[in-house]
């Protein structure tokens, strides 16, 4: 993981070619399918319609989706497309003296988490002949000649995007009044709380412009907490603890840490590093939403574009437990409710 945690070592995907005698040979490296990211799903389908099976692969780490275009391009292939999953056909073919009886079935799922289309494909070797094609045609099967190739798309993988750690809470988090008081919060006005460190180069780079923009805009109150200031120590610690819960232990909590508190005293957004005004301004826009629109927001799209089915609120129980153990709240206080 980003912080260097590794549960199982470095494990590449594996591919084997069938030697036709019940034996396989490892071709992971020479096929280019030995991706180092954590592979999960392989889905085969003739994506480009040329008769060979292309692959869509899904990963946990790195780019999470890859399309691998098969270059085999057979002259002809046998397509079985009955229109329903669960259908079977046995294709008898002859290649020289050898006769194969190949069972093809259509289904809706294969492997793990891979939903497949209903068409089954069998590539034919150059001199391979399908026997009794007329009977097979009555079952929705046919031999297809190689189609005209279409212009090749650009080769390459998706480019990673450097995303700073930032969480938009899908259901905002109520903060105790005592803490709001420490932050100089005024009810009815949103507040930006920034935790900064004098030795932090990123703080020096990003904060001046962001602070100037906040002050110009005038919609936000502003609190700056210096990690070196003993008076701010307690607030810095509980803010950091909350941010850790939101951003996860994989996130390296660093400064500047910023938290956006809505006009009703509820924590809406937490972020580490980058504090670009345009991005921040969009977050401030959350507060103008109706509660229904604003609740259960996406982490990526503008509000209202996508939707939740469950709309499950975040549980504060683990956070409350940590805050209790650290002595920041008492059992009767806010987060134990």
């Amino acid at each position: 993981m980003e912080s260097g945690v590794s549960w199982s070592g470095h494990e590449r995907n594996v591919a084997w070619l069938n030697l036709e005698r019940g034996e396989f040979v490892d071709v992971s490296a020479v096929s280019g399918l030995d991706h180092a990211e954590d592979g999960r799903v392989a889905l085969r389908c003739d994506w480009d319609g040329d008769g060979d099976l292309d692959l869509w692969l899904r990963f946990r780490s790195g780019p999470t989706l890859r399309y691998l275009e098969n270059q085999a391009d057979p002259e002809r292939h046998f397509a079985f497309d009955p229109g329903v999953p669960g259908a079977s056909v046995v294709v008898e073919t002859r290649l020289g003296e050898v006769v194969h009886r190949t069972l093809l079935q259509t289904r809706t799922a294969d492997g793990y988490l891979a939903g497949v289309r209903q068409r089954a494909v069998l590539a034919l070797q150059p001199n391979e002949v399908v026997l009794d094609g007329a009977a097979l045609a009555s079952q929705g099967a046919r031999v297809v000649e190689r189609p005209e190739p279409r212009p090749a798309l650009a080769a390459g993988e998706l480019q990673p995007v450097d995303l700073p750690a930032r969480v938009v809470l899908r259901s905002s988090l109520s903060l105790p009044g005592e803490w709001l008081g420490q932050m100089g919060f005024e009810r009815g006005r949103a507040q930006l709380v920034i935790v900064e460190d004098p030795d932090c180069a990123a703080c020096r780079e990003v904060l001046p412009a962001a602070v100037a923009a906040v002050e110009r805009d005038g919609r936000l109150g502003l609190t700056r907490l210096n990690t070196r200031n003993p008076a701010a120590g307690s607030a810095v610690r509980w803010l950091s603890m909350i941010a850790t819960h939101l951003l996860g232990p994989g996130a390296e909590l660093d400064t500047p840490l910023s938290l956006l508190v809505g006009p009703d005293g509820r924590l809406e957004v937490a972020r580490v590093g980058d504090l670009e005004w345009g991005d921040l301004s969009r977050d401030v826009g959350w507060f103008g939403l109706q509660p229904v629109q604003g609740a259960f927001r996406s982490s990526f799209d503008p509000p209202g574009v996508s939707r939740w089915f469950h709309g499950m609120a975040r549980s504060t129980a683990p956070l409350a437990q940590d805050l209790l153990e650290a002595g920041f709240v008492s059992e009767s206080a806010h987060y134990s409710k």
Binding site: V14, S31, S61
Partner: peptide, 17 residues
Amino acid sequence: LNADGFDDLVSPAGFLT
């Protein structure tokens, strides 16, 4: 994978690395 009519195998691997 090589369009010879015989199915090959591709096996994604790795958990949290």
